[in-house]
């Protein structure tokens, strides 16, 4: 018990919260980027532009089938070879964005595909252009169905940022390791703190997803 009290000193909690902040920052930026990119790629996949869609589809498949850890290594160690130097934070954001937008593209493609084609035809018959019908009729409906899947993908993203400790991203996981690395009495308290912090963040997001689902349905 004493270990827990000592471990949760203000200094340590503050340090953990700093790490949590980095985790949230990296996740939030990656979520925004990957949602935009994923939607664009998903649309390209869906509307079947000759060659482009096939190439995009193949690249998406490649990324989806590689471990995220490997993509993190490529952005951190590989990109500087073509002149792009990123610090661990931006490398992680980029890796997350690449990986998650590939995941999201697939979700969005199949989400749009699941909307009744009659909706599109009806909208077109009423004089909307293809893109108007897509934007105002098809996408909102697809979005409603996709929300749970997309949010659980975002939850994965938050959890997966912990993998970036391998390139010394100073996130929650790394900060916890620094603390228990210096005093092994703190190991158990730190794991409890890690579990609680990650859980609270991710669970809040999944509650939000249930709420959105109900609101939009």
């Amino acid at each position: 018990m004493q270990n827990f009290i000592n471990a949760y000193s203000w200094v340590n909690i503050h340090y953990l919260l700093e790490g949590l902040w980095i985790t949230l920052e990296v996740s939030a930026v990656s979520i925004v980027f990957s949602y935009i990119l994923g939607a664009i790629l998903g649309l390209i996949r869906y509307i079947n532009v000759k060659y482009l869609s096939a190439i995009v589809g193949f690249v998406i498949d490649l990324i989806r089938n590689l471990p995220l850890l490997l993509i993190i290594f490529f952005t951190y160690f590989g990109l500087p070879n073509i002149g792009i130097r990123l610090n661990p934070i931006w490398s992680s954001i980029l890796a997350m964005t690449i990986f998650e937008s590939a995941m999201l593209a697939e979700i969005i493609r199949s989400g749009i595909g699941a909307v009744d084609p009659g909706q599109m035809e009806g909208a077109r018959a009423n004089g909307l252009t293809y893109w108007q019908a897509m934007w105002h009729i098809v996408l909102p409906q697809a979005q409603k169905k996709m929300i749970p899947t997309i949010v659980s993908q975002f939850i994965s993203l938050i959890k997966d940022t912990s993998l970036a400790t391998i390139i010394v991203l100073p996130d929650l996981m790394y900060h916890a390791q620094i603390i228990y690395g210096q005093n092994s009495n703190y190991i158990l308290p730190m794991f409890v703190a890690l579990a609680v912090m990650y859980f609270v963040v991710c669970y809040m997001l999944s509650i939000l997803s249930h709420y959105l689902e109900k609101r939009l349905a």
Binding site: Y76, F77, P80, N81, R85, N87, I166, I167, V168, P170
Partner: peptide
């Protein structure tokens, strides 16, 4: 100062980070 591990230090140096 940039934190490195034994695994990341040489790639980072060669990259120019």
């Amino acid at each position: 100062f940039i934190q490195v591990s034994s695994q990341t230090r040489i790639p980072l140096l060669k990259n120019g980070n």
